[in-house]
Amino acid sequence: MFEILESRLKGCLKLTPKTFVDQRGQFTKVFHEKTFSDLGLETQFKEEYFSVSRSGVLRGMHFQSPPDDHVKLVYCLNGMALDVVLDIRKGSPTYGQYDMFELNGDEASCIYIPKGFAHGFYTLSDSATMVYKVSTMHSPNHDHGILWNSFGVNWPSKSPILSNRDSSFAGLESFISPFTYDD
């Protein structure tokens, strides 16, 4: 049902579902509880939302801290985005390292992001619609981020369109992580 690609960041996966295409268009199942359960992945998602971003927009690098930290399942419904996941788990062999994925509405790949990772993306097309399923409710008091240009990603633009909030996050070098790596 899914082609699974393990990221170099332990626990982070790229899941590409089987897509059915015919003269009517496309049909894709992005979540299947039994398949996720069999893979040892989160199956209980509390919220789902989407964002629409224009070309050159960078959103990130976001995460929620404990006790409201969450697993995310992210995919691009329409358009194309460069998705970035950053390991922020103390003691992890890949702490401070990132992985990048190109997501688009035609391929329908999802990124499974465990707790202890920051997430962001850059819009590559004229517009991109990104969908997020999360395992906990949004908690403004636990909603944080890492500065987008503080950990070595070669983003497509050195001056992306950012929110005031995203441009004000502290850099990775001064970040004190609330997450611990659990092998």
Results as ranks from 00 to 15, higher is better:
Leu5Thr: 15
Thr19Gln: 07
Asp22Ala: 11
Phe27Asn: 09
Val30Thr: 15
Val30Ser: 12
Val30Tyr: 04
His32Val: 15
Asp38Tyr: 10
Leu39Val: 03
Leu39Glu: 11
Gly40Asn: 09
Gly40Leu: 07
Gln44Val: 14
Phe50Met: 13
Ser51Phe: 04
Ser55Pro: 03
Ser55Met: 10
Gly56Leu: 00
Gly56Val: 00
Leu58Gly: 01
Arg59Cys: 03
Gln64Gly: 04
Asp68Tyr: 09
Val71Met: 03
Cys76Asn: 05
Leu86Asp: 04
Arg89Leu: 11
Ser92Gln: 04
Tyr95His: 07
Gly96Val: 03
Gln97Thr: 11
Tyr98Ala: 09
Tyr98Ser: 10
Met100Cys: 13
Leu103Val: 01
Leu103Ala: 04
Glu107Ala: 12
Cys110Trp: 01
Lys115Arg: 13
Gly120Thr: 00
Phe121Ile: 00
Thr123Phe: 00
Leu124Lys: 00
Ser125Leu: 10
Ser125Asn: 04
Thr129Gln: 14
Lys133Val: 05
Ser135Asn: 08
Ser135Phe: 01
His142Pro: 02
Asp143Tyr: 02
Gly145Tyr: 01
Phe151Tyr: 09
Trp155Tyr: 03
Trp155Ser: 00
Pro160Tyr: 07
Pro160Arg: 00
Leu162Gln: 04
Gly171Trp: 08
Ser174Lys: 09
Phe175Leu: 06
Phe175Pro: 02
Ile176Phe: 06
